[in-house]
Simulated scan of single mutants.
Amino acid sequence: MTAKIAARRYLPTAAFALTLSLTAMTPAAAQQGSVPLPASLKSAGHIAVGIETTYPPMAYKDPKTNERVGFNVELVNAIAKELGIPVKWEEMSFEQLMTSLTTGRIDMIGTAISDLPSRRDKLTFVDYLATGAQPFALATKAGVLKSNADLCGKTVGAPRTTSYMPVTAAWSEKNCAGAGKPAITVNGTAGATATRLELKQGRLDAAVLGPEYVAYLMADEPNTYAFVGEPLNKTLFGLAFDKKNTELRDAVAKATSTVMKNGSYQQALKKFGLERQSLPEPTVDAGQ
């Protein structure tokens, strides 16, 4: 049976008021960067970074303190340290990020945004983390659902407003039906929270979300979930820049490389459970 789905690209829709904050950095510290700054940043005295804070563990608000936290927050702060310049954070909705970048309101997008060829007509990326459509199940089914092939013939849920539905259906068409096995029945859900609920209620055998979010769920509810195989596709998260601003992109790429070599990157990966998504070095515009 071939799964029938309606696909739409995921774009978070919640609007958030713009808030600004400066990462504390003394003038002395601002001169200790290991990477030369572009003239525009030297003149501004800071790097303006747009971020959307509703996607744990990449960037979100700590429910206890309401402070901005997450892997991307720590990564950008570490990069800024290598550049020797403070971060001026600008919180906004996902939809505002690209427009704010191309109009010069911000210098860089620091939120979790996929480096896609379709976005590179206006943007250029420094890739720092692998991602994709990650299957997972309840830990009680870990003995039955171990590999991607074990999903054939099962009911798998994914948010209907994301790319995870068509990716799962396409994978099933090629690797299940194409191999003479029962196809995956792909059920659309109302979102990540609904996906988790239906999985726990037994309406789904497995689910598909971003591996970074699955890692967050596993930390939030220990011993409840387990990964099933590898991501069904592989893409890259990148720090985004206006396509014309290659000088800043290249400076950030150098700083990211340093952060990956000095241990700050690995420390942040471990803190947020993202070790399996690490890259050995940053790349530029390598997403597919």
Rank of each mutant, 00 (worst) to 15 (best):
K4N: 04
Y10K: 07
L11N: 11
F16Q: 13
T19N: 11
L20H: 09
L20P: 00
S21M: 05
S21H: 10
T23C: 03
M25P: 06
P27V: 04
S34E: 02
V35H: 01
A39L: 15
L41A: 06
K42H: 09
H46K: 08
E52V: 03
P56M: 07
P57N: 13
M58N: 12
K64E: 13
E67Q: 15
G70V: 05
V73N: 06
L75G: 07
V76W: 04
I79V: 14
I79L: 05
I79D: 02
K81I: 05
G84R: 14
P86D: 08
P86K: 06
W89K: 02
E90P: 00
E91R: 09
S93Q: 10
E95Q: 15
L97A: 08
T99M: 12
T99F: 08
T102D: 03
T102Q: 09
T103H: 13
I106M: 11
D107Y: 02
D107C: 07
I109H: 04
G110N: 10
S114V: 05
S114R: 06
S114Q: 06
D115L: 02
R120P: 05
K122G: 01
F125A: 07
D127S: 09
Y128V: 11
L129M: 12
P135A: 02
A137G: 08
A139D: 14
L145I: 09
D150S: 12
C152P: 10
C152A: 09
G157F: 08
A158C: 07
P159G: 11
R160G: 12
T161K: 07
Y164S: 04
T168W: 03
A169G: 05
A169R: 08
A170T: 14
A170N: 15
W171Q: 14
K174T: 15
P182C: 12
P182Y: 12
N187A: 13
G188D: 06
T189S: 14
A190D: 15
G191C: 13
G191E: 13
T195V: 12
L197D: 15
L199F: 05
Q201L: 15
G202Q: 10
G202K: 11
L204G: 06
A206C: 05
L209H: 10
P211A: 01
Y213A: 12
A215S: 15
M218S: 12
M218V: 02
A219Y: 03
N223S: 13
Y225H: 10
F227V: 04
E230W: 00
L232P: 11
N233F: 01
L236S: 02
A240I: 07
A240V: 08
D242T: 00
K243P: 00
T246A: 07
R249N: 09
A255I: 11
T256V: 13
S264Q: 14
L269G: 03
L269V: 08
G273W: 11
G273M: 11
L274C: 06
R276S: 15
Q277K: 04
L279Y: 08
E281K: 14
T283N: 01
A286Y: 01
Q288A: 04
Q288N: 14
